[in-house]
Design a protein around this nucleic acid. Structure first.
Length: 275
DNA sequence: TCGATCCTGTAG
DNA sequence: CTACAGGATCGA
């Protein structure tokens, strides 16, 4: 379920609930979850360590452990990572889990089982993350950076935004929402978009993500909330056929890179001369 | 740069 | 039954 804002919410909650906890044991229920690492090896690396820090890089969750170990979790489409009070009561779709000190459980639940969990020692983690692009909420992500990156690519705007090697953390929803706010047609090659509009795109990516993080954190802090942060009010995503909130034209859906793209044909024109 | 693929669940 | 799902990777 997660893009950057939801992953960020998960990280914050884990920090509040699990920092300092001992990891009594890790169990991998599904070998493919840690592939190509062997489950038995992964389990051995982690047992007996302390959870010291929780970090986010793009859509990846990094659990820093004592003993110079790190766990990297990617939730993909349907993954959830959360603490339960009693490790004995695990949901059916649990793909991996940790017994924390005191009998609590850290659960990696994932109905579609596309999510991943890997363990790294020392510097190995940096290698695993080296292909990831810039953090869109960092100070390095400037308008100038985006203008330069866009000028070097002929990719359609939406695929450009979703390319994790460029900007890390945007997915199908927030890429579409950002393009709507910036008034950019999702199929438009990024190197043919006016500079001022790329600068606008930079601004809306920031504000959109900040809003979405706030919204996800709020939704995810509700008691009982376990994985969902489906609270963000989308202007285009999932609204095919509904009227655009700005111009009342019908939201359209097209296919890009095998995925659905939603956009407003009135607010996001193929030519750069839209209003 | 595209399509197929990895999986399971749900909606139509 | 088919289509689709907030992701990423692989081979053609």
């Amino acid at each position: 379920m997660p893009e950057l804002p939801e992953v960020e919410a998960v990280c914050r909650r884990l920090r509040a609930e699990a920092i300092g906890a001992g990891i009594v044991q890790l169990r991998v229920e599904r070998p493919r979850t840690t592939w190509p690492q062997r489950p038995s090896w992964v389990e051995r690396q982690v047992a007996g360590s302390i959870l010291e820090r929780v970090e986010r890089r793009g859509k990846h969750i990094v659990l820093r452990l004592s003993g110079d170990r790190a766990i990297r979790v990617h939730l993909r489409m349907t993954g959830k990572l959360y603490v339960i009070p009693d490790v004995r009561f695990r949901p059916p779709a649990t793909r991996a889990w940790m017994e924390l000190s005191g009998g609590r459980g850290l659960i990696f639940e994932d109905s579609r089982a596309l999510g991943k969990l890997h363990v790294y020692r020392g510097r190995e983690l940096d290698q695993a993350l080296e292909d990831l692009g810039i953090e869109p909420l960092s100070k390095e992500f400037t308008a100038g950076w985006l203008v330069a990156a866009a000028s070097r690519s002929r990719q359609p705007a939406k695929l450009f935004l979703m390319d994790q090697r460029r900007v890390a953390g945007l997915g199908n929803i927030y890429a579409a929402e950002a393009l709507f706010r910036a008034g950019i047609h999702p199929a438009r090659p990024v190197n043919r978009i006016r500079r001022s509009r790329i600068e606008a795109l930079h601004r809306v990516i920031r504000s959109l993500l900040e809003e979405a993080v706030a919204s996800a954190v709020l939704a995810y802090s509700e008691p009982g909330a376990v994985g969902e942060a489906e609270s963000f009010p989308c202007a285009v995503y999932g609204r095919e056929g509904a009227p655009c909130e700005r111009c009342s034209r019908k939201i359209r859906r097209i296919r890009q890179g095998g995925r659905s793209t939603y956009f407003c044909p009135g607010c996001q024109r193929s030519s750069s001369h839209s209003g």
